[in-house]
C-alpha cells in the first residue's frame, strides 16, 4: 500500500529573524516519516534555500511538500517580483541581493544553484510582478 503525505508551511517575506524556521520544522516532519541520509540532507538544503529566497525577495510565499514512497515533491510559490532572466539567475555567483542581505551572509548567488544540485528534477516558472514557482523533485 503506498502512502502519501502532504503539508504546507507559509513563509513571510523580509522576516530574516525567522529564516530557517520553516525548514527546521519541515525537516523534523520528514524525519518522522522515516526519511534519512542523503535524501534528507538534499531535501533540507533545497527547502532552506527556497525559504531564504522567499524571505529575501518576496512579500510572502508557501512551501508545499508531498511525500510518496518514491519521491519528495516540493513546490515553492511566492508573490515576489519574479525572475527576469532565469538562465542568469541559475548562474553560480549571480545575485540581486542588496547589501543588507549580503552582510548577513546571504545573497552569495548560490541558492538556486544549490537547489539544482540537490534535486533530481528542478523547474522554475516565473512571471514578472506576479511571482515565482519552484518545482523540486527528489527521489527517495
Amino acid at each position: 500500500m503506498s502512502q502519501k503525505y502532504e503539508f504546507s508551511f507559509p513563509v513571510k517575506g523580509d522576516n530574516f529573524d525567522d529564516a530557517g524556521k520553516a525548514s527546521i520544522q519541515i525537516k523534523k516532519r520528514l524525519k518522522g516519516l522515516g526519511i534519512t541520509g542523503d535524501v534528507l540532507r538534499r531535501t533540507a538544503i533545497a527547502i532552506y534555500e527556497s525559504e531564504v529566497n522567499i524571505i529575501s525577495y518576496a512579500r510572502q510565499g508557501n512551501i508545499n511538500i508531498r511525500v510518496t514512497d518514491d519521491n519528495i515533491s516540493i513546490n515553492i510559490r511566492d508573490s515576489g517580483p519574479g525572475i527576469a532572466d532565469i538562465k542568469q539567475a541559475m548562474q553560480q555567483g549571480y545575485s540581486t541581493a542588496n547589501d543588507r542581505i549580503r552582510k548577513m551572509g546571504f545573497g552569495a548567488g548560490m541558492g538556486l544553484f544549490n537547489i539544482k544540485n540537490c534535486s533530481d528534477d528542478f523547474e522554475i516558472l516565473s512571471k514578472a510582478n506576479k511571482g515565482t514557482l519552484l518545482k523540486i523533485l527528489i527521489n527517495r
Binding site: V52, M104, A108, M110, N114
Partner: peptide, 9 residues
C-alpha cells in the same frame, strides 16, 4: 565559511 549557502551545501 561565512556564506550561509556555502555552509549549507
Amino acid at each position: 565559511g561565512d556564506l550561509l549557502s556555502d555552509v549549507m551545501a
